[in-house]
Amino acid sequence: MRYDNAELNERLAADYVIGTMRGAARRRFEDIMAGHIPLRRAVHRWEQRLFWLSMQLPPVQPPPEVWARIERQIAPPGSVMPVAVPSRLWQALAAGIAAVALVLGTLLVSRAPEVQVQVKVEKQAIESAHTAIVADNTAPIWVVNAYPDTAELRVQAVRSVPLADNQSFELWMLPDSGAAPVSLGLLPRVGSAVLTVSAEQLRILAATSKLAVSIEPAGGSPTGAPTGPIPYSAPLLHTAPV
């Protein structure tokens, strides 16, 4: 089936959104949509046009047990205090790895024995256009996702690796052209960070297949080029054509 025809895209998207597309055709469409931006946008437009029909239904109060079950799932009892951080990590890890798992299967997940997360690939979750997992020999350290729409790079430190207090980890693009590394900013030691990227950086990112991490003086390279050792590098995967 052809997916490069705008009119056909509209029709298929409408058929999908209204729900009359069923069975294997629906699954196949979801697979294709995950990697097809025009189709995904057509679907989003139809969702936005039609969801008002659902808003016309009279609201019905669900029983309180439903929320109780949700609450238990997101914060298991007995671990109310410390759960905030692990659940956030888990969530970011799942979202970050989902994109890669699509391409690499379970390879990377099985390389992370400490994490033991069963990643369920949810194609709808994949909105980042570029993604990378920076890992050492044992497990992932950072999950990097780039979102061109909002000019953001979201970085999650999955675990922390030792570094002197007067040093920082800095993330670099190694452009395919062979040009000098271009900095993307400093990596968080723990937790997550949102780095803003310029249009120029995004342009380079789209033509980059490899990221590297260098150890710099605190605050980042004073010269604009890597000055310290480069302990980690990772392939950059382009999950959606832009």
């Binding site: 808003m55 997101i74 949810e122 709808q124 980042s128």
Partner: peptide, 27 residues
Amino acid sequence: QEVFMSVWRKASSYRPARGSPMAWMTS
């Protein structure tokens, strides 16, 4: 319950460009 677990897990992938939050959740 499943819908709100999805919302929780996928919240980081939501972008205003793809439609209103209610349209997203309704879908």
